[in-house]
């Protein structure tokens, strides 16, 4: 993929993000932050590539450290989001 193609995806995704986030109810803004936190750890993809690559030991260890950090975020972020969301209940009738 060339730069222009990637950049187009990025710009369109910004628009999608803009509209999707405005439709999030204010009551769920804290879970929104924790779940965006979890998904921004998709950076783990880069960390996995670095840890799997041969060629530089420093690079590999940096990658593994990044895998640990991103995993804390992924598991912690999704777990705390689902813990919070489980608390939101409707009125019992």
């Amino acid at each position: 993929m060339d730069f222009i193609a990637i950049f187009s995806i990025f710009v369109l995704a910004c628009f999608v993000g803009y509209f999707v986030v405005w439709s999030v109810t204010p009551a769920l803004h804290t879970p929104l932050m924790s779940v965006t936190n979890a998904i921004s750890s998709v950076i783990i993809v880069g960390a996995l590539i670095a840890s799997a690559a041969a060629g530089s030991a420093t690079s590999k260890w940096l990658g593994l450290a990044a895998v640990v950090m991103a995993s804390i975020n992924i598991f912690g972020g999704f777990a705390v989001t689902s813990r919070m969301l489980a608390m939101y209940k409707k009125k019992e009738r």
């Binding site: 995806i9 965006t36 998904i39 921004s40 998709v42």
Partner: peptide, 11 residues
Amino acid sequence: MIITGALVGSS
């Protein structure tokens, strides 16, 4: 990563 980054960034 690009889609996620854009989503989180706008959020």
